[in-house]
Amino acid sequence: MVRDASGLLHLSPRPTPRPGPGELLVAPVVAGVCGTDLQMLRGVRDDAAPVLGHEGVARIVAAGPGVRDPRLVPGAQVVVNPTHPTDPSFLLGHNTTDGLLQERTLIPATAVDEGLVLPLPDVPPGVLGALIEPLAVVRYASLALSEHRPRTLLVFGDGTVGHLAVRTARRWYGPEVRTVHVHHTEDGLEWSARARHSADVRLGRAGLSVRRLAEAIGDDPLAVLIATPAPATLPCLELALDAAEGVDTVVDLVGGLTRPPTSTRLPGVDLAALRAANRAGQPQPPHIGRLGTASGDKVRVLGHRGVAGEHLLEAAAELCREPDRYRDLVTHVVSLAGAVPVLNRLADTRDRIVSGRRLVKLAVRPQEPS
């Protein structure tokens, strides 16, 4: 599934590559479509990869000479970490490295040598492999935020990461943690109200006042996870800081940032640089900025781009342990051919209703006949 010069997606035959020294050829079994992919299709991001897709599970088809890991053999099922810790030329499905929304994907030696292709001891059932990467993001965030022993977790964003953060909160922060979930759409709010697993407090972003949010979060130690599209990240951060004035607060900027990446609430802070300080799970422990707000409070802020291999494996294990807890988040499953009209439509609208149902996670089966 290739983006043409106009940005539209279409199916295109391509020669099947042969892996060279240190390379792997994989067949994606299931690939997830995330908010970042939609931002690329909408032109919000300028990533150049013609073939998108950085989430999912794949099967190794062929290994080039010199692949050192004896587990990376044809037939092995793997997850690929899309973010290289040191080589910016590898960013799966984003820059020049084509992603997983195709029948065969070539993984370059720089990623294989770095250990970014991870054999899965157990594979999540069905199409749940599409949730491994976003759940790994949530796992990384939980490890960083739980160090500060929050009693309340405030989540902005009603996409996949936001829902996963709510569903894992008591598992990864402790059984007493409260969850407050801010949704960006009424459709999202209604979807959560019907879901088997939802937050203790559900709020809509439209018209949400500082006072109402302050009442919802209380005055206990607070962790904030902002998993929104880039244009919404700063407004949500500022709303959270205003509502949490005087509260012991730590914030994780999971979502991207628009330019300039600054806020009047945090004078002189380049939030993009702060977010980029943690890449692919490094350093460990993650860098956390200890900042002063314009109102005189102290707040801790971090962000991260990508995760470590251990987070991906922990996420896969969690999906295997409790598949029913997460299964309903994969709301739509299509073939490559079926994905084309869905994604072309989503590129032109903010409407997340597909086939009469709200889209949370779209899973694509590249091997399924068109």
Results as ranks from 00 to 15, higher is better:
Leu291Ala: 00
Val307Leu: 15
Pro283Ala: 05
Val67Thr: 00
Asp37Gly: 04
Arg196Tyr: 01
Asp46Val: 08
His84Arg: 05
Leu189Gly: 06
Arg365Thr: 01
Thr264Phe: 12
Val340Lys: 00
Pro65Trp: 12
Thr152Gly: 04
Leu336Ser: 00
Thr16Ala: 15
Ala294Thr: 10
Thr249Ala: 08
Asp158Asn: 06
Leu239Tyr: 06
Val30Met: 07
Ala273Glu: 11
Arg205Leu: 08
Ala339Val: 00
Pro85Thr: 12
Leu362His: 01
Leu329Asp: 09
Pro124Gln: 05
Ala276Gly: 07
Ala363Arg: 08
Arg59Thr: 08
Arg202Val: 01
Leu52Arg: 06
Gly64Asp: 07
Pro124Ser: 14
Leu72Trp: 07
Val177Cys: 03
Pro150Tyr: 00
Asn278Ile: 11
Leu101Gly: 01
Gly204His: 10
Pro70His: 06
Ala337Asn: 00
Leu52Met: 13
Val117Tyr: 05
Arg194Lys: 12
Val79Glu: 01
Leu91Trp: 13
Ala136Gly: 05
Thr86Cys: 11
Arg42Glu: 02
Pro17Leu: 11
Cys34Lys: 10
Ala244Cys: 11
Ala5Arg: 15
Ser295Lys: 09
Asp37Val: 06
Ala347Asp: 07
Ala232Gln: 10
Pro229Met: 07
Arg321Tyr: 12
Val61Tyr: 11
Arg290Ile: 14
Pro13Lys: 04
His311Tyr: 10
Gly35Val: 09
Ala111Asp: 05
Ala169Ile: 05
Pro82Asp: 06
Ile226Val: 06
Asp87Ile: 06
Arg325Pro: 01
Val67Asp: 02
Leu154Glu: 00
Leu329Val: 14
Val127Glu: 03
Ala276Ile: 12
Asp87Phe: 11
Leu203Met: 08
Tyr140His: 15
Gly53Val: 15
Pro229Trp: 04
Thr168Asn: 08
Arg350Cys: 04
Val360Ala: 06
Ala317Leu: 04
Glu368Cys: 00
Asp220Lys: 14
Arg290Asp: 04
Ser89Trp: 09
His183Thr: 05
Gly162Pro: 02
Thr185Pro: 03
Ala206Ile: 09
Glu314Ser: 06
Asp47Gly: 01
Leu100Asp: 03
Pro221Trp: 15
Val354Met: 00
Thr233Leu: 06
Pro341Tyr: 02
Asp87Arg: 13
Gly56Trp: 13
Val364Thr: 00
Gly292Trp: 05
Ser12Cys: 15
Thr168Ser: 13
Pro283Trp: 10
Gln282Cys: 05
Pro82Ala: 04
Leu120Asp: 09
Val51Tyr: 07
Gly296Thr: 14
Val340Leu: 00
Pro175Met: 14
Asp220Glu: 15
Pro229Tyr: 13
Val117Pro: 04
Gly99His: 12
Leu164Asn: 12
Ala240Met: 10
Gly93Cys: 08
Pro134Arg: 07
Pro13Asp: 04
